Simulated assay, not measured.
Amino acid sequence: MAKSKAARGGTGTPATVALTREGVAFTLHAYTHDPDAASYGEEASAALGVSADRVFKTLLADVDGSLTVGVVPVAGKLDLKALAAAVGGKRAAMADPAAAERVTGYVVGGISPLGQKKRLPTVVDASALAHPTVFVSAGKRGLEIELAPADLVRLTGAGTAEIGRA
């Protein structure tokens, strides 16, 4: 995969900066974001012409009082019980959007699992490993990063588990 101009040293997001710093191959994909879109992830899938099982959304949950990141295909939902179990917790609930923005440094709809202000426990849905590349937010609405799932897991320090459901 070729690195974009932004990834080679121009202005970038914290996610692209982190990937560049680590020397990870990735491709940046931009599309025109529609502020009226019902689902940011499904919008990205349609705009880029990529199957929704290869485009992953980044969601934050409160697991037993600690924020945790779940990365799941946009075609499905985050299984909160499975996420809690994956990190050794008992209960999980979706995080407050304002708290998610504050701790990650990104806006809702553009939260990337990469380059967050604070490193949080992260779990990537195991289905990601079935694809040569996956797409995640690059840190702003209308911008996606395509990269190998193994690089995503390694750079986020993530575990993998079946945390997505249809």
Score class of each variant (00 low, 15 high):
Gly164Gln: 10
Val108Glu: 00
Arg102Met: 05
Ala98Thr: 02
Ile145Leu: 14
Ala82Arg: 00
Val17Met: 00
Gly76Ala: 07
Glu162Ile: 07
Val153Asn: 08
Gly41Trp: 03
Ala130Leu: 13
Leu67Val: 04
Ala61Asp: 02
Ala138Cys: 03
Ala18Asp: 11
Phe26Gln: 08
Glu22Pro: 13
Gly105Pro: 02
Gly65Pro: 04
Val17Ala: 02
Leu60Asn: 13
Ser51Leu: 14
Pro149Thr: 10
Leu147Met: 14
Pro35Met: 01
Ala38Tyr: 10
Thr133Gly: 13
Ser112Val: 02
Val74Asp: 00
Asp53Lys: 02
Val71Glu: 06
Thr11Leu: 13
Val136Asn: 07
Arg8Asn: 09
Lys77Ser: 06
Ala128Gly: 01
Gly139Glu: 01
Ala92Cys: 12
Pro132Cys: 10
Lys140Gln: 05
Gly23Val: 07
Val71Arg: 09
Glu22Tyr: 14
Phe56Asp: 13
Val74Thr: 02
Ile111Phe: 12
Val87Gly: 09
Val124Asp: 10
Thr13Val: 06
Ile145Trp: 10
Val17Asn: 00
Val107Pro: 15
Thr160Phe: 01
Glu101Lys: 14
Arg154Lys: 13
Ala46Ser: 15
Val74Met: 01
Leu78Ile: 04
Pro121Asp: 14
Ala166Tyr: 11
Ala85Asn: 07
Ala47Pro: 03
Gly65Lys: 03
Ser39Met: 12
Glu101Pro: 06
Lys57His: 06
Lys77Asp: 01
Asp64Gly: 12
Lys3Trp: 14
Gly115Arg: 13
Ala130Lys: 13
Arg119Gln: 14
Leu60Phe: 14
Thr156Asp: 03
Lys140Ala: 04
Gly88Tyr: 04
Val55Pro: 07
Ser112Phe: 00
Gln116Thr: 13
Ala2Ile: 10
Phe135Pro: 04
Ser39Leu: 14
Glu42Val: 15
Ala161Thr: 03
Gly159Pro: 11
Thr133Arg: 06
Arg102Thr: 04
Ala82Pro: 02
Glu146Arg: 04
Lys57Arg: 03
Val50Trp: 07
Ser66Lys: 10
Ala148Arg: 15
Pro97Leu: 01
Leu120Gly: 07
Gly142Gln: 08
Tyr106Gln: 02
Gly10Lys: 12
Tyr40Ile: 10
Arg54Cys: 08
Gly49Gln: 10
Asp96Val: 00
Pro14Asp: 15
Met94Ile: 01
Lys77Val: 03
Gly88Arg: 00
Leu129Trp: 06
Val24Tyr: 02
Ala52Gln: 03
Thr58Ala: 02
Pro97Asp: 03
Thr27Asp: 07
Ser127Ile: 08
Thr160Arg: 00
Met1Arg: 09
Arg54Gln: 05
Thr11Ile: 06
Ala82Phe: 01
Lys140Tyr: 07
Ala85Ile: 03
Gly76Gln: 08
Leu155Asp: 11
Thr20Met: 03
Gly49Ile: 09
Pro73Arg: 00
Gly41Arg: 05
Ala128Cys: 02
His29Asp: 06
Asp125His: 15
Ala30Pro: 08
Leu155Tyr: 03
Gly70Gln: 04
Ala38Gln: 12
Ala86Asn: 09
Leu67Pro: 05
Ala130Met: 11
Gly9Ile: 08
Gly142Cys: 11
Asp151Thr: 13
Arg91Asn: 14
Thr13Tyr: 12
Gly89Val: 02
Val24Cys: 07
Leu129Asn: 07
Ile145Ala: 15
Ala25Arg: 14
Ala148His: 15
Ala61Tyr: 04
Tyr106Gly: 01
